[in-house]
Design a protein around this nucleic acid. Sequence first.
RNA 1: GCGCCCGUAGCUCAGCCGGUAGAGCACUCGGCUUUUAACCGAUUGGUCGUGCGUUCGAGUCGCACCGGGCGCACCA
Length: 490
Amino acid sequence: MDVSKLKADRLKKLGQLKELGINPYPYKFERSHLASQLQELYKELPKGSENEDQVTVCGRIMNSRNNWLFTDIHDDSGKIQLFCHKDSLPEEQFNMLKLLDKGDFVGCTGTMKRTPAGELSVRAKNLVILSKSLLPLPDGWEGFTDVEARYRHRYVDMITNPEVRDTLRKRSLTIRHMRNFLDDHGYLEVETPTLQVEAGGADARPFVTHHNALDIDLYLRIATELHLKRMIIGGMERVYEIGRIFRNEGISTRHNPEFTMLEMYCAYGDYNQLMDFTEEMLRYIAEKLLGTAELVYQGKNISFAKPFRRLRMADAIKEVTGLDVSTLKTNEEAKAAAVKLGVELENKDSRGHIINAIFESKVEHTLIEPTFLMDHPVEISPLTKIHRTNQGEVERFELFVYGRELANGYSELSDPQDQRERLEEQAKKKAAGNEEAMPLDLDFIMAMEYGMPPTMGIGIGIDRLVMLLTDSPSIRDVIAFPTMKPIKHQ
RNA sequence: GCGCCCGUAGCUCAGCCGGUAGAGCACUCGGCUUUUAACCGAUUGGUCGUGCGUUCGAGUCGCACCGGGCGCACCA
């Protein structure tokens, strides 16, 4: 069956509706109840009985049986059956039924009934079409499962697969609970530029765009960090931004080129305090969203209720590989140790990068339960304060859950001279061809020279958090319209 | 970017060693009619992702391309 023939059938019905003087695309409709409200309100209505309570519902026709006698409509809340019998409907409306199709929107006023089979129904007494659908929806028991088609036509996915809407609803609620938590703790939500002259604050390749009037290239931000810290310097002591970040990198089940990140900064705190705060916030969000902080993700139990494990990176490596990284004094010794462990070292030369590579290759995937992995090498953390006691380390933590990085926080570097040296080091790497190294942001250093208070700051990947909370295997499941390669027409 | 796998009807899928393109659901028509139908009967419906090649003959074999999935890499 050519889809154009299916469409032609529906166009013919559309024409017939118009000939009957019916507007298939009216302007508004007022309902009295959502489907779920009726299901709740009349859950005690016995089988085979009905009453005179008048209700008005509307939604999309998803199924019908017996020549429209039993017609299921779905609204955002759920499903309700319309009982369309010729004795209850005006004749012209009863005749209109055969001009309807699955996928059409209708509105219906009627009385409440529960059929002998037990299905709560609205006995239709007035039925109007609210929109004619011209294309067939996927149906049958198999449903709509083709992964590419689902993401390319996400609206069909949303219509057909209710869990899609549920996941996106939970995404919205996750962010709402997060906002509430931060607002309740005295944080101010702010906005910082998406278009930037230099994209800094993370190790990532940016997207480039062009401003015509200024005739300059601009970069889409890869982090909000440097601007939020400018606000801390400016005296705004607790700020956060939940915003879209763009990174010009590969696409996978855990990566979308644009994703949403929370970054928050708080003056006068350090990373120890921040770990407590992060734990408390995640526990709060899970309990508000799911009613429990005990999660199940892809068949594994993950507890946000218990205190998160805190593990130094050096200890983690020692635990898994037996290697004591404190004995590695030089780049060469580090490299030799990594090679001995079979760790791939592409373009990684510094001791810190090599230690991090060992961690990522040997340890990261083992961190299933929430774990704060602490005290990273200084070389991989150019915006972080030097550890107050441990040589060569910084006061940083990454939160790992299910072997994936969920958050990254630290005691923010506030010494402008140290910051300048570290960014100059980054700029050298960038000049040497490392596209992910940070640029030398002189204005940021100048801001810090005016004086920056001790500060704690964290970034949390919202998409990955929602994946965990909704047991979604792919980041695309938690993004309404994930990035897709366009189809090439020849 | 690399590796493995996939692409056949609107949807979900068969199609073996190369020999006339199939099923279920949906659609259309008919039957039944305060009944749950995922029913009964009939009819429709396909440049087998695209191109080139091998062959008497290609959905099937080969090559290239397009699109996708998963994994790796990079990162959050």
